[in-house]
Simulated scan of single mutants.
Amino acid sequence: MADSLKDLKVAILVADGFEQVEMTEPRKALDQAGAKTQIVSPMKGQVQGWNHHDKADKFPVDVALDGAKADDFDALLLPGGVVNPDALRLEPKAIALIKAFADAGKPIAAICHGPWTLIDAGAVKGKQMTSWPSLKNDLSNAGARWVDQEVVVDGQLVTSRKPDDIPAFNREMVKLFEGAVAHA
């Protein structure tokens, strides 16, 4: 797995309130596989992680959302947490960025509440997906086929339900993103 993602550029799109472990553990797996990860955010300077309902660590923002373009990246990671995707859904530039990744057929990994943003980007219709259970109706109403599984891969999209699923999510995310390396 080491260097299987050598030089792959991955955008990690987050706002304040992301579930910290859903960013840090997938990011670690990507970095260990050789990817170059960058936090993209509408927040200025730093972005606040959460551990369930409590504030956790702050992380430096590598790329301001205003300057982010899907063309500058090969893949996208969308961590969850309730507050994070809810805030991103209100950011037209965030939704436009996600839509650009989806329209370009670039791989996207979303966990927990992260798939919520994919609804606004028009990227769920006809897709088999999973998420935190409270998103089941939202995703189904938007045309996705929701299933209760630890990880689901459908085309360029990989989704997972919760932090307990991170090992399976990381495995399938790296596998999916390796396809982007092959196409580069």
Rank of each mutant, 00 (worst) to 15 (best):
residue 22 E to C: 03
residue 29 A to C: 10
residue 184 A to W: 05
residue 110 A to E: 02
residue 115 P to K: 05
residue 61 V to G: 07
residue 10 V to Q: 04
residue 96 A to T: 11
residue 159 T to I: 09
residue 67 G to S: 15
residue 152 V to M: 08
residue 97 L to F: 10
residue 110 A to L: 06
residue 17 G to C: 09
residue 15 A to Q: 04
residue 144 A to K: 00
residue 159 T to L: 07
residue 158 V to Y: 04
residue 22 E to S: 07
residue 73 F to Q: 03
residue 36 K to S: 13
residue 165 D to S: 12
residue 68 A to R: 02
residue 155 G to F: 07
residue 70 A to H: 09
residue 32 Q to W: 00
residue 33 A to H: 08
residue 90 L to A: 14
residue 133 P to N: 07
residue 137 N to Q: 15
residue 43 M to F: 05
residue 140 S to M: 10
residue 137 N to M: 14
residue 138 D to Q: 13
residue 179 G to Q: 12
residue 62 D to T: 10
residue 121 A to F: 07
residue 87 A to H: 11
residue 18 F to Y: 13
residue 166 I to L: 15
residue 169 F to W: 05
residue 128 Q to R: 14
residue 150 E to Q: 15
residue 179 G to L: 11
residue 62 D to F: 06
residue 174 V to K: 02
residue 31 D to T: 12
residue 127 K to D: 06
residue 141 N to W: 10
residue 8 L to P: 02
residue 173 M to H: 07
residue 15 A to L: 04
residue 129 M to A: 07
residue 10 V to F: 04
residue 139 L to R: 00
residue 75 A to V: 01
residue 87 A to G: 01
residue 112 C to Q: 03
residue 111 I to P: 00
residue 152 V to E: 00
residue 68 A to F: 04
residue 86 D to S: 12
residue 138 D to L: 11
residue 51 N to G: 12
residue 15 A to F: 07
residue 71 D to Y: 09
residue 175 K to P: 01
residue 26 P to I: 08
residue 135 L to V: 05
residue 178 E to Q: 14
residue 76 L to G: 05
residue 146 W to M: 03
residue 108 I to P: 01
residue 40 V to S: 06
residue 22 E to N: 05
residue 179 G to S: 10
residue 128 Q to C: 01
residue 149 Q to K: 15
residue 122 G to S: 11
residue 126 G to H: 09
residue 102 A to E: 07
residue 146 W to N: 04
residue 99 K to E: 12
residue 180 A to S: 12
residue 32 Q to G: 12
residue 96 A to V: 00
residue 178 E to S: 14
residue 125 K to A: 15
residue 134 S to H: 12
residue 86 D to P: 04
residue 42 P to E: 06
residue 55 K to A: 14
residue 181 V to P: 01
residue 14 V to D: 00
residue 48 Q to I: 07
residue 83 V to F: 10
residue 32 Q to L: 12
residue 71 D to A: 15
residue 8 L to T: 11
residue 120 D to S: 14
residue 35 A to G: 09
residue 122 G to M: 08
residue 46 Q to G: 00
residue 57 D to W: 00
residue 173 M to P: 03
residue 7 D to K: 10
residue 80 G to P: 06
residue 83 V to W: 05
residue 19 E to V: 03
residue 31 D to K: 13
residue 65 L to W: 02
residue 81 G to L: 03
residue 133 P to G: 08
residue 177 F to E: 04
residue 123 A to G: 06
residue 48 Q to S: 12
residue 184 A to V: 11
